[in-house]
Simulated scan of single mutants.
Amino acid sequence: MTAAHLMAAVASGGKLAAGARIAGLGIYRPSSVVSNEEAAAAAGVDADWIAQRVGVRERRRAGADESVVSMAVEAGSKALADAGASADDVDVVILATCSMPSPMPNGAASVAAGIGCRPAAGFDLNAACSGFSHGLAVADALVRAGTAGGVLVVGSERMSDWVDEGDRNTGPIFADGAAAALVLPGDRPAIFPVAWGSDGDQAELIAISAESGHMEMAGRKVFRWTTSALQSVIDEACRRAGIAPANLKAFVPHQANLRIIDTLARHIGAPGLVTATDLTDAGNTCGASVPLAFHALRQAGRVHSGDPVLLFGFGAGLTYAAQVVLCP
């Protein structure tokens, strides 16, 4: 780190921005694909049961050389390339994850170093499956306040370390992967105010057991909470963005369960609404699921630059965060 580099980092903030925007997206999907037949055999269920109950056909599992940090570095580097930006454009790295192997050191500083963003600030954010959406809200605020000129938000998870493959409630569902978004200043808002919150009274519904070290989830109760309590969050996010739900072009919810996704999409009721269903081929990648699904829609040409898209993360905590963004 040179003295000039350090001084440039210190001086990078301070100028209020008219708005913030997602300038680029990048992803990393582990190469190992686990079929429903393999997952079903481990969990003692039928392969069709997984597809019908959850909507997953296959999922990705990280190998020994694919860590939360290494996957985040790959996804973050691709987001910078997609935006035509460099590591010098990043002042802050936010790593949204709940699957680091240990609580210390944090992962974000290592991600920043791996990408070459030193001396960018780096911190981890744990809001589980809504982590990326929380991170995006923080990035938007940092950029608009002039605290940072560029913020890299990365959702990266290695959930296979924390689930028991023999547990039918988690083993066939959760998976690994990473995705990132580079947030830069814009001449108008392209990330709109977040609608977020939590219900800690129900935190025990999704948790890592201190005894087993594995994730435990009360799937039916989580399903009821998501499909009943969270519909109003969609309406509030649209209200804060000044857009009618019917005018949304796409909906990118956390990829938890295909029945949950369908229920929430029907609530929006927008004609021709494109709804992300990355779950079918990627599984539930927790904090990485929203940006992975967003990237998949964009890569397939199902959303286009400037389209209003509703991103919606929800999960353990219980936490939730929704915001309308304009597609980069």
Rank of each mutant, 00 (worst) to 15 (best):
A181P: 03
V93S: 03
S156I: 13
G197I: 11
A270N: 03
V183S: 06
G272A: 05
G155D: 05
A85C: 03
G14S: 13
S12V: 14
A244V: 13
F174Y: 10
A17P: 05
S228F: 07
V194N: 15
I191M: 07
R60V: 11
L326H: 05
R259P: 00
L125W: 03
G171V: 03
L318D: 00
I22G: 00
R53F: 10
H304W: 03
D199I: 09
L184G: 03
D124G: 07
M104R: 12
E58Q: 15
I173D: 02
V34M: 14
F192H: 12
V163N: 05
S86F: 04
F312S: 06
F123L: 13
A250V: 09
W225T: 09
L297K: 00
A87E: 06
Q231H: 07
S77A: 13
S232A: 15
G55R: 00
A39Q: 04
P30V: 12
L248M: 05
T97N: 01
F174A: 10
F314Y: 12
A87S: 11
G84H: 01
L318G: 01
R266P: 01
F223S: 02
L6D: 05
E74Y: 02
G155I: 09
D176I: 12
S12K: 14
I50P: 01
A96V: 06
L142K: 04
T97Q: 00
V233G: 01
R168D: 04
T227P: 03
A41N: 11
K78T: 07
T277C: 07
L326V: 02
S77V: 05
V222M: 12
D201R: 15
P101K: 08
A109H: 02
F192E: 06
G177T: 07
C327P: 00
L125P: 01
G63P: 04
K15H: 13
R61N: 04
I115A: 07
I115D: 03
A11S: 13
